[in-house]
Design a protein around this nucleic acid. Sequence first.
DNA 1: CTGTTAGCGCGTTCAG
DNA 2: CTGAACGCGCTAACAG
Lengths: 340, 340
Amino acid sequence: MQNSVTLRDVARAGKVSVSTASRALAGGLTSKSTETRLQRIAAELGYRPNTLARGLKTRSTRLVGLVVHNLANASFRVLAEVVQQRLRAEGYQVILCITADNPDQEAETIATLADQRVDGLIICPTGHNGEQLAALDRGGTPVTCVVRRHEAVEMETVLAADPEGAFAGTRYLLELGHRRIGLIVGRQETTSGRERLSGYRRALEEAGIRFNPTLVHAGRYEPETGLAGCRQLLDREDRPTALFVANHESSLGVLRGLAERELLVPDDISLLCYEDMPGFEWQRPALSVVDSGAHAMAELAADRLLLRLRSHAAPPAATAHEYRIGARLIRRQSCRPVVS
Amino acid sequence: MQNSVTLRDVARAGKVSVSTASRALAGGLTSKSTETRLQRIAAELGYRPNTLARGLKTRSTRLVGLVVHNLANASFRVLAEVVQQRLRAEGYQVILCITADNPDQEAETIATLADQRVDGLIICPTGHNGEQLAALDRGGTPVTCVVRRHEAVEMETVLAADPEGAFAGTRYLLELGHRRIGLIVGRQETTSGRERLSGYRRALEEAGIRFNPTLVHAGRYEPETGLAGCRQLLDREDRPTALFVANHESSLGVLRGLAERELLVPDDISLLCYEDMPGFEWQRPALSVVDSGAHAMAELAADRLLLRLRSHAAPPAATAHEYRIGARLIRRQSCRPVVS
DNA sequence: CTGTTAGCGCGTTCAG
DNA sequence: CTGAACGCGCTAACAG
């Protein structure tokens, strides 16, 4: 059965008490000689401490929960990879959970994670279980929100600078001379959906262009939304000269929609996407994007959590901070000046 | 601090002993009256069992490790989503780990997972830590391998039917009249790399066509491989009339390579990919593929593991079985008959 | 059907 | 510096 080499076995083999063995392996609590001796014995026996027993005693499992909506979204993927790697380096394991953006599933997930006594939690919240998360945080299990903010509850959060990102993207298109810019964006019930729309509006207004709601298509985070948006925007009399796809998942659908109408990017229409991903760079033409900085968000979220994990004593942050990761415009080949 | 409502608190509130409370909450071990009464009390108090303590006692954590190389590969993504969902339904949590196909990292990951006393493990092995995995399996922690087989060690494994898949794909192209079929495939050190190449060869030979090694480009699982393969194969005098991309990650690179040379699919050249993913269907033209059945593999792997998890007593399978998931050819728009 | 007792494996008092 | 004893929260023997 299993690796049943227990501390007791090590102690016995070293002819010391269990507590001495414990101290020797911890290091610096015994004479140097017994320390090295017992560590050698432990290694020879292939001793591995039982995480459960240790956790029961120390109230720390070195487990961290990571909760995302899915793995199709490039940002979530980056989040999963980076967070997992970063935390592993500090001796934490990551429990990955997927909620499908479903509040009930999220509630259950959070509860289960709490049951497992995770030391901390990084989550992209649906926005419906704020109190549950806040309680966890108050109870001493640090919670860091990413990508989406929790409206109701105050909690440490790292977000993309979506208002600025959308502003910069729109502005870029304006500078290229575009005046009718179609926007395909996420549901307005979400932070990112709202903020990206508002950035777009602001850029328009600053340029003295009246905001035209019929140029905007908001929808669910799916390729189908992009396709539908394309159809709606492209079948107009005054077809937009540029499309800003600020709903990441929609990008695929938009590509297909454009192809359906045999519109060439960027000759017939300019295309700007949101949230970079490897595929975009490999596309032909390579897609220009507003990179929302998923990598940096992931790193910061991990770092913030680690910080609070280490200073266990520290208060749950007098005021929960909100961090924003700057967006970055990446010019590739899918946008060009409008021909006048 | 935390949810410190312990079983003891419930027992006290219900004026019974701790063990009675335990039994009541388990159900069916006490009088119906105390059972419902205590369950109500527990609910009111917001009691949640401590998984650690339970695990220490029962030697079961309801934690399952899932180890993959990355999340960029579509099959791994499907694996992660499906396995996690399937196991969750049975009350297991999934610890997701990423090895980057690095043996050292894998070894460390496996050890850590064992420390956490996971109940089982689903892993796409690098192939270098077989003994470690086998030991775990022997020790009573069921291990199921996916996607890649472990050459040295015998272990329960669920694989794609790659020889047949590659055969079917090649055969399809042959039936369309193609005679010079370029193959871009994975490293020959991997099971899938070898098996896909062999399927390709067999189809060729059955059709009475001599295998031409210069039409094959094998490389790492990255888009760059596809690009390099494209260049190598497309710059020949007798350019292939069809490309079979049996290295999933390379597909993006191939698309770019084709675009670079301004070759139109399927007019100028036919293109067949391997391992389906959402993006392929949304491409224009929609990419025909050999679907290796990631979804089915994930389900089967989860089911097999669950089976062994439940019948804890059952022996570690007298002979470790190997399962194969049939491949499926999906004809879309990227292949056409060769013009003669 | 219920209460009492005894660990699971570890870290941490408290004496020596 | 080391050993003995205790308890984390829970389940599973054994009695009653």
